[in-house]
Computed example of a mutant assay.
Amino acid sequence: MRIVVTGREGQLAHSLRAVGASSGVDIVCLGRPQLDLSEAATVSAVLLGTGADVIINAAAYTAVDRAESEPEKAHAVNAAGAGLVAQAAQRLGVPIVHISTDYVFDGGWQHPYREEDRVCPLGAYGASKHDGELRVAAANPRHVICRTSWVYSPYGQNFVKTMLRLAGERDEVGVVADQLGSPTYALDLAEALLRIARRVLDEKVVDEKAADTPLFGVFHVAGGGQASWADLAEAVFAASASSGGPSARVRRIDTKDYPTPARRPADSRLDTGKLQERYGIVLPDWRASVGDCVSRLLGARAGTGSSSSASP
């Protein structure tokens, strides 16, 4: 099985390479400048020559706050670009697995969101991702749109790495405690996506009947359990301290105490029951996974002999 992944430098692409290497899956990761979703001419020209069995579109404009001042750039990648990738997959005759986000919801329902719940993004980033979902679905009936949330990993820039860096600089860190979500370890997500890819390849359907196939459509793919950002920070510091790494006290603050250009959903927990029902996939609880992530990051620091090697 050859899986072509867009977004070569992202957390998920790194995680897919790591998981694929141990699973015997051929993972080909593509990114800029060779493949730039904001440059339409590069998309089909590159993807049509890859020999992909499945395409995972993990490329995204993820600067949530900056998107408020440059929405056209977010839209070019997350919406128009995503649609172009889905079109290329359709021309190749292969399924597309497209990564979306909990930010398509406004966070006001106070229960874990199901796939059929009303979409109402609060900002430019979420709006661009929702538009991308619509374009992917319209371009390729054989689509699996995977909404995920609060992704962290040993790679790239993410909340867990930021907390470890801050713990090495100060004794106390103020962290938002009134936003709830589903923290998701990118390595767990990568394993789930490989299982999804295998299943959709085994599903022999013609395009016009794809919409009736239970393996296609929108799915929520996120870590088990729930947390606030403060809960996640406390777990990071506890895991680090137990391994002799840096730790800090968490000062729980409200969203209003940490203003940002983009509004965040107050409660974007994702219900993953459909994923379990259709695919039999349940991601591990975030509390176990965050320990593995911290252990890997501390091991990387020790291996390089530099306390700054794991910084974003």
Rank of each mutant, 00 (worst) to 15 (best):
I145T: 09
S311D: 15
S243N: 15
P259K: 09
I253Q: 01
T148R: 11
V85A: 03
A67S: 07
W150F: 10
A262L: 07
L47D: 01
R114F: 08
L193Y: 13
D65G: 04
T42M: 03
A52G: 05
Y103T: 05
L35D: 10
T42C: 14
F105K: 02
P121T: 04
A241K: 06
P112G: 05
N158T: 12
E115A: 07
A138W: 06
K209D: 14
P71N: 09
A192V: 04
V5Y: 00
E234F: 01
E133D: 06
P121E: 03
A230C: 01
F105G: 09
G181Y: 00
A300M: 15
A211K: 13
V290L: 08
K204E: 15
Y279G: 08
E68S: 00
A266F: 01
P33D: 12
P183C: 04
L297Y: 07
G245F: 00
L84P: 08
S44E: 15
R2V: 04
A300T: 11
G81H: 12
S182A: 09
I281P: 09
P33A: 03
G223Y: 01
C120A: 11
S309Y: 15
L189Y: 07
V104I: 05
A137L: 13
L92V: 13
D202N: 15
G223K: 03
A52C: 08
M163Y: 01
C29H: 01
A238W: 07
L37N: 04
R278E: 13
G10C: 04
S182R: 03
P121M: 00
L16Y: 09
A300R: 12
T6H: 07
